[in-house]
Amino acid sequence: MIRLENIHFQYPKREALFSDLKLHVPRGQWVSIVGPNGSGKSTLVKLVNGLLSPDSGTIHIDGTLLDGESVSDIRRRTGYLFQNPDNQFIATTVRDDIAFGMENRCVPRADMKQRIDAIAEQLGISEWLNRHPASLSGGQKQRVAIAGLLVLNPEIMIWDEATSMLDERSKQDMLLRLRHLHKNQGLTILSVTHDAEEILASDRAVVIRNGVIAADMSPIQLFEDRNLAWECRLQPPFSLALSLELREKGMDIGLHHHEEELMRALWPSLHVNK
């Protein structure tokens, strides 16, 4: 689905960031891009979306070579969200802003209202539809930006820290929705994130360090390698951190990142030692 071959990339007046980078993401896979700050994660996803062009090498999206001609068509099928939602609002009301993407994709007017209302309802943003995007908090803006993207039913989603400002509750809701879309509609996801729950929900963790893919592993393997996880500025969620700590101290109950599983694994052996 996404195929990067022999990518070379360099920002002006800086050292080469990528030399001969290669990454294949099959259709329907959910990939988390992680790594230390400044390692090239954002650059990578900007290349995939055509916001930046490689100095050499090729990027294919669903078999189509990404170039000046195909970029607008590819962007139409790709939903891209970045960290600061302020940079992606165009209209003066939330409703118009969500409509904007659909207008670009020639969605009939009659359908538009219905689709906006439906997505707003699902994401709990109906109350804000007539507000100016600038009047919303950071987390609210991110929710609106996500709604504007989901309403377009993209085949590929590329997120760059797109949920970083959401409160815990909204983050959980969003993750549930993402899981659903991934499972039932085969959505391909490429996401730069520090969110441990999101990483653990994904199929694969790609670690970028100094412009190279330093590791390509399952999310659980990433957290098992404590030094690597720390280097990527990541921390396992409580249940997983506890099962890792227990294993290290000689009590192996398996690795669990759901609290219920952890409980079930603990009960058989638990009693009070005075």
């Binding site: 227990l246 009590m251 603990l266 052996s269 009693h271």
Partner: peptide, 8 residues
């Protein structure tokens, strides 16, 4: 947990 578990 280690202290209070027979498995350990």
């Amino acid at each position: 947990l280690i202290h209070n578990s027979d498995a350990a």
